[in-house]
Amino acid sequence: MPINPESGTPIYLQIADWIEDGILTGLFQEDEKVFSQYQLAEQYRINPATAAKGLSMLADQGILYKKRGLGMFVSPDARKIIFTRRWNGVLQEKVRDAITEARLLGLTEVELITMIREEMGGEK
């Protein structure tokens, strides 16, 4: 993964995203060690503290866990956590889009909900 300092995403988030991708694709297995902050720093030529920030963010979310003196490991729930969060995120965004579009067209809340119900009913 190339780090892109010009993209709107801070580097430590890019690092976190990349590790998440690795977990989803199976590059990092459950209870397997991921790269250390120093390996990441050298690889992407960033400050180790920045890399550590990305790792600790994942640890805070329960995606990684720390073994003292050994490094960061992929937690058994990692895939589930990432999946849920990303899924929610994507869906939320789509809903927001729908609301914006509805407002532009002058639809009321009730009309929009009706529309969603119809769509869901139709799929059954």
């Binding site: 300092p5 010009e6 993209s7 709107g8 995403t9 927001r96 889009d97 914006t100 532009l104």
Partner: peptide, 13 residues
């Protein structure tokens, strides 16, 4: 930022 306003946000070096 309002969708559809055509605004784009990027990071600053």
């Amino acid at each position: 930022m309002n969708e559809g306003s055509g605004l784009k946000s990027t990071s600053v070096s």
